[in-house]
């Protein structure tokens, strides 16, 4: 009898909890939709206002931009530029991540090594990359190489600093405990050091994409025969506003897709980290 009453009470409490969960989930779905409303509103006003109170020469309009994108990829006029820029971004990114990651790791692990790298890294980092972009184009030519170099330079620093910081913020107790529990030095690296710096590394990989794009586009602005940056510059020179926006949208897509992939990885493997904060 008492047991029955207890089960009834538990059931009632569970029902209340379930209703609360349901309510929360509905609210989440609602904000998920609602947060896009301002953007939709802007696009609608832009589209409808173009030609009346919005000057199409300076602002074009969403449908024209979309049309330009579709046509550009259908007749191939945008494809070549997109491939060139993707190549520059990817190449620069890869180089920057590998070099920045390696030097950042070594500097983090060895104080002696970092005392050598530190002054140069700090000095180079203080130099505005935009300011040295022209000389990089002079050195490496107007082809794709100069873009790869500038992109990798931009990526290098963000990866270097993040990985360095990651190593330096490892909990020393974890290292000691792992050793006492029987881990060899090599096992400590795999089982403690790498998981500890994983969140920092992922942040670096994510931000690196943005910096790679910036580097590639700046170099293209200075001198290029191909690429989305080149395309944007040409378009703006001819007051082709739709072309400018089309180019920007391509770059946006690259960043959104790449960072989206990293966000998925983060959600899947680094839940422990974000819940700890």
């Amino acid at each position: 009898m008492a047991a029955q009453m207890k089960t009834a009470q538990v059931k009632a409490a569970q029902a209340v909890a379930a209703a609360g969960q349901e309510r929360k989930a509905r609210a989440r779905r609602l904000t998920g939709v609602a947060k896009w409303l301002p953007l939709v509103l802007i696009l609608v006003v832009w589209e409808l206002g173009s030609g009346t109170f919005i000057d199409p020469l300076f602002f074009s309009k969403p449908s024209t931009i979309l049309q330009r994108l579709i046509e550009g990829f259908r007749d191939g006029s945008l494809t070549e530029h997109t491939y060139a820029t993707l190549y520059e971004i990817f190449g620069g990114y890869l180089l920057g991540v590998i070099i920045g990651g390696t030097l950042g790791y070594l500097s983090g692990v060895s104080p002696r090594f970092s005392s050598y790298t530190e002054p140069y890294v700090l000095l180079l980092n203080a130099v505005p990359k935009v300011a040295i972009a022209p000389i990089i184009v002079v050195w490496f030519g107007i082809g794709l190489t100069s873009k790869v170099v500038l992109a990798s330079l931009m990526v290098f620093f963000v990866v270097f600093f993040n990985v360095f910081l990651g190593i330096r913020s490892i909990n020393v107790d974890y290292l000691h405990l792992a050793r006492i529990m029987g881990a060899s030095r090599r096992q400590v690296i795999w089982s403690v050091v790498l998981p500890s710096i994983a969140p920092f590394t992922l942040t670096a990989l994510k931000q690196g994409v943005v910096f790679a794009v910036i580097g590639a586009i700046i170099a293209e602005f200075i001198a290029a025969a191909r690429g989305v940056g080149y395309y944007i510059q040409m378009a703006s020179g001819m007051f082709d506003t739709a072309g400018v926006f089309a180019g920007v949208l391509i770059l946006l897509a690259v960043v959104v897709v790449a960072t989206g992939v990293f966000s998925l990885i983060e959600k899947r493997y680094l839940r422990w980290y974000h819940r700890n904060r």
Binding site: S196, W272, Y273
Partner: peptide, 8 residues
């Protein structure tokens, strides 16, 4: 502090 590895 318990120092369980937070990633495991």
């Amino acid at each position: 502090d318990s120092s369980l590895f937070p990633w495991l």
